[in-house]
Amino acid sequence: MNTPLLEVRNLRVQFPTRRGLLTAVDDVSLTIAPGEVLGVVGESGAGKSLTGAAIIGLLEPPGRIESGEILLNGRRIDNLSPEEFRKIRGREIGAIFQDPLTSLNPLYTIGRQITETILTHLNVTPDEAKQRAIDLLNEVGIPAADKRIDHYPHQFSGGMRQRVVISLALAAQPKLIIADEPTTALDVSIQAQIITLLKKLCREHGTSVMLVTHDMGVIAETADRVAVMYAGRIAEIGPVAEVIHHPQHPYTVGLMGAIPNLGEEVERLTQIDGSMPRLNAIPAGCAFNPRCTRKGEIGARCTTERPSLMNAGKTQAACWLYSEGVATNTTNTPQSVAA
């Protein structure tokens, strides 16, 4: 077993508000191995983006890491000062955000933005930095990179801009990239191009990726493992094929059934009634219990005691169905939804 590149232990992110303390990320633990792509999937408000933001040290105040540890290569990074963190950000952890227009400075040419990153983090001359910037733009598939380097962000299309952002994330050769909804703002044909590119580059550079998205299809195409988040907690985590074909947690089962799939004729989609609880009204016990169709099988435990991740099939699920006492129940586990 390799030592993980990134290890998150019991991360809890809270927001103090006038109406009280909101826990947006609640006791999340995960690891990413070198070269691995971990998908983090969930609906809006599940805490997936905040987990990414906490790892890269970009939580917006008043949000703060209440407890837990984040270790990069065995070194704690969650308690670094902003100055110290700035040396890591870009150098060791790169970031790709959803909207390429807001993550590029509209007043600077893209060449200047890329060389700035390179000069900040790597010990090279300005000429070498410029050459490296051109190489990077070539690598991400921008035609005529030596001319395009002097263009401004608004002169690029959405897909091309996202390529520039990827080259910017790779500029200082980080070992980990946090990609927060990198293809959500793009059309499907462009999304396919960007996913293919991201996969190829990460394989070539041996970069690990934490891919945050709400699109299960993108995860299926890209990730090695996937963590399904619900109401700030990890509901299920495991190898991507297992989670998609043999989901164990009732929420994952519902989620997979709710996604319409091409070439499959179903009269009705599986429906999870209700919606995700607000952060100020997370139910006691399992956060999913008011919407869960199987809580009757367990009894009162679901509404009183919060489940931690337990071994379930080939994945881990935070569900009392899989605790030791009721292990016999798992014979009627939900069948594969997507197979």
Binding site: A192, A220, A241, A338
Partner: peptide, 8 residues
């Protein structure tokens, strides 16, 4: 063919 393939 551009749609991500959920069935893998």
């Amino acid at each position: 063919s551009a749609i991500p393939d959920l069935r893998m």
